[in-house]
Amino acid sequence: MGRVLLPFEFYEPESVAEAIDLARRHSAPFIMGGCTLVPSLRRRQRREPCLVSLARIPGLDDFSIHPRTGMRLGAKVVASALLPHIWAGKRFAALHEACEQLYPPHIGNMGSIVGNLCSGVPYFDLPTAAMALDAELHVTGQGGDRVVKLEDFYTAKFQTVLSRGEVVTQVFCPPHKADSGSSFKKIYRSRRTIDDLHKLNAAAMVTLDEDRARIIDARVVLGSWSFRPHRYRAAEAVLVGEAPNFDLFEQAADAVLAELDPVTDLAWVEKTRFAQCRVLLRDTIAQAASRAKSRHDPFEDAAEILEDAS
C-alpha cells in the first residue's frame, strides 16, 4: 500500500495504430483518465512497468446520441459529458442515470465511460446500465477491427476478452423501439466478506407494444453480485407478453433471485441481501416500464433536432 506510485514508463502516442503498436511491444495497458488504474497502482493491487496513454489521440472524444441512430461514445468521452444531453436522459436513461449517480461526482469529470467498461471491476455501475442497453464495443487491434457485445466481454474478475494491444475505440448502444424505457438503480451496503461487493446495482429495459398494453421485449440486469453483471433471461421471460403491473415485476424479481447463490455464510446477511435485491430489481423494472409508457419523443421533435444538428 503506497502513498505514491512506483515509477513506470509512459508513452503518449498520437494515433490509434501507434498506440496499439506500443502497447503490444511493451505488453502495456492503456490509460485514459486513470480513475481505475491509478488507485490500483497506488495500492499495489496492480503493478505495471509501462503505460500507454490514449489522452493525446485525436478523435476519440467524439460522441453522438439520437433516438433513431443510437448512442455512440468515443473512448475518451467522460461520464459527465452525457449529463446535459437531452436524448441521453430520455432514451438511454439507464446509462445516463448511472453516470449521474457516479459517486463522487468529480470522477465523472475524469473517468471515461469506455474505461469504466474496460476495467472489469465487478461493482462498477456503467457495465450494468450499458448491458441493459445492449451495448457493444468496437475493438481495434493489430489484426483489424471487431465488435464485441458487452454481454460477452467479461471473462473473469478484472478480466475481459481484450488482449494487450487491443483498444476499444467506441461503445455503441443501438436505438430502440419507440415505446421503450430503461432505468438504473443502486444501493450501498456494508461488506461482510472479501467477496462481498458492498453494493448492489440493477438496470432494466422494457419495450411495450404499440398500444402500450403488453411488454414485447425486456432486459433485466443485476450487477455487483458476481464478477460481472448478468442478464437474467428467466426474469425477462416472465415479463414478455404480459401487461406491466406491480405483481409481475415482483415475479420477475423473484425469477432473478431463484438463480442467485449466497455470498456469505451468515444467514441473516443473506436474507436481507436477497430482500433488498428483490426490491431493487422490482423498482428498477417498474421504473423502466413506467418510462416506456410515458415516453414522449414524437418523430417531429426528433426530426427537428436532427436538422438543427446538421
Binding site: R189, W268, T272
Partner: peptide, 18 residues
Amino acid sequence: MTPEKVLAMLQSGGAENP
C-alpha cells in the same frame, strides 16, 4: 443501525438480532 440490521429485525419480528 444499517438497513441490513433493521431489515433482519423486521423479518424476524425482533427475534433475529444481528
